[in-house]
Design a protein around this nucleic acid. Structure first.
Lengths: 337, 337
DNA sequence: CTGAAAGCGCTAACAG
DNA sequence: CTGTTAGCGCTTTCAG
């Protein structure tokens, strides 16, 4: 049973192929009853338009590529869901590509996506350089691009993400207000997110008139194991910090594990704040204070920006969506009542 | 700058379009040096084959649909990653569709995927009936299908999943061995997974000679909020259970939250075992005992089954991959030393 | 070994 | 309002 084609429906009905095609797409140039008759038969025969053939001639694939570093991080999973939810009702299908934070994997994925003639691309890039071949070929194909989460300076693209400096500031200020005096920061990756949060951290410390001990600013990453390791290092210091702002919730979760294992209490000995408000933060060892990034709003924002760009045939100027951070205080940082 | 086509490369090189096409696909009928020359120029011009056009004539899209109920559950996210990791190196792209556990959404997604002429489908279905129009149209299009996680009786499809009865048995037996006498079960959805685990629970209880108090077998779902609510109900019972086997880790996490809030201790008052070994189980309030389902092996198994089916042009008989469960004991159920 | 012709299923442009 | 023609970029088939 080969799939039903337009031609089959047409012959079955004794009309021309074009009539069916038009009826299907609500073309105005068609009689009301003819359309009804066609639509009915199309339904009965369970005809499915062939999107490849359609795309071939219209130049639109109705495919959108979503390139992210790690689906397992609920932050990206949530973004992926928000993007899908926005795009699916508009007839787009989302192809998700996992880069595992590898630049090379990312480039390969994008290259294939481009070959598939995606109508648009949403990328949380592991790249730092807008002059990389990847960005050049995207620009070359004139495929609308929206960057999310990580901003890449110089890339001709819209961006949806959070105000990272604000996140760092908010979290750090909160720790200071809770009475922490030796505040540490476990850094994220050297991308806009990590750098922004670090900057926010410094800003808040400076504003409070607290010195930043560089021993307290340690490299981490995006994973809980990185947070665990970094925290163990901090605890070995002669004077361990009494408050830690962690790049992300997974990092914070790992850090908390290290603290508990070392026999310290949270928040009594060390207060912790993460970022991201991942879904399970509330269920952790000690419910985790965090800065909500509004990931679904980032996803929705990205989808909106992309749709707008895709519907214009001509290049649209890059736009920005910055989602404001929101502090969520839970047990891990509550020292005063 | 329109994308480079085969024709462009050919003209540039002064050869026919066919020569380029053949060189690209390692066709034997081509001279060694011609091929080298072509390949070099193809590289330089950064030519990307148009997959839509190619698919149009070959009838293969190199697209695979992955239909799952919820990307946010790390169980499915991990499966998605495993599937992608297996399929991407083979040249396939995975289109992930989120159904939010809605049958209707699932049907719509599958219908579009079919219209896109996917080469294969992997589905964790919310449907229970193999005679639904969805399964009929998949069969009608002769698209290879692999069911994952949830088995649907009667569907002409391969299956990769865990031994759910074994999971229930393993978890429950463990609780009994730890000294629990009033063992409860928070059920999952009424699909093969939920039913299987329930059956395993009953089996273990029977084997141990313990009666199953039907008050202790309560409906839950797949989410932590469901676990939270169900557990609150259980705690209100005159004699609350002293051990609970929860359908999944998220459910267990929710249940633990309810227990802690009510002022009981884990595992002292109530021991808890979940299922799934989700990534953050180790970081929870009380590290969660769980039954590992080997989700990545499920994903890999599904991908393997699908690839085998896709490479055969003719229908292949359904195959099965059952991943054996593995008990992981953490603090939430450790009552004896 | 290389090339020319035909056509995949569909839609845009034009002609009745 | 309806039908005809041409072609999207590629591969398959067949002829040199």
């Amino acid at each position: 049973m080969r799939p039903v084609r337009l031609k089959d429906v047409a012959r079955d009905l004794g009309v021309s192929l074009m009539t069916v095609s038009r009826a299907l797409r609500n073309h105005p140039d068609i009689g009301e009853q003819t359309r009804a008759r066609v639509l009915k038969r199309v339904e009965e025969l369970n005809y499915q338009p062939d999107w490849m053939a359609r795309g071939m001639v219209t130049g639109r694939s109705y495919l959108v590529g979503l390139v992210i570093p790690d689906l397992m991080h609920s932050f990206f999973a949530e973004i992926a869901m928000a993007v899908s939810a926005k795009l699916t009702p508009l007839g787009y299908q989302v192809v998700i590509a996992n880069t595992e934070e590898q630049v090379l994997t990312e480039e390969r994925h994008v290259s294939v996506l481009l070959g598939r003639k995606v109508d648009g691309l949403i990328i949380a890039s592991a790249q730092r350089n807008a002059r990389s071949p990847m960005f050049r070929s995207i620009a070359g194909c004139k495929v609308p691009l929206v960057l999310i989460d990580r901003f890449v300076k110089g890339a001709e693209a819209s961006y949806a993400g959070s105000d990272d400096e604000g996140i760092g500031d908010l979290a750090t200020t909160h720790l200071i207000e809770e009475g922490c005096r030796r505040v540490a920061h476990i850094k994220g990756p050297p991308l806009s997110t990590g750098r922004g949060r670090l900057q926010g951290f410094r800003l808040a410390m400076k504003r409070a008139g607290l010195p930043v001990d560089e021993q307290y600013v340690v490299p981490g990453d995006i994973s809980d194991t990185a947070g665990y390791d970094a925290m163990r290092g901090l605890l070995k210091l002669p004077k361990p910090p009494d408050g830690v702002f962690c790049y992300s919730d997974p990092v914070a979760a790992g850090a908390m594990k290290a603290i508990t294992e070392a026999g310290f209490s949270i928040p009594g000995d060390v207060a912790i704040v993460g970022a991201g408000n991942v879904h399970y933060s509330d269920l952790l060892r000690v419910p985790l204070s965090t800065v909500d990034q509004g990931c679904s709003r980032i996803g929705e924002g990205a989808a909106d920006l992309l749709v707008r760009a895709m519907e214009h045939r001509e290049m649209t100027p890059p736009e920005l969506v910055l989602v404001g951070p929101r502090l969520i205080v839970r047990e891990s940082s509550r020292r005063t009542s």
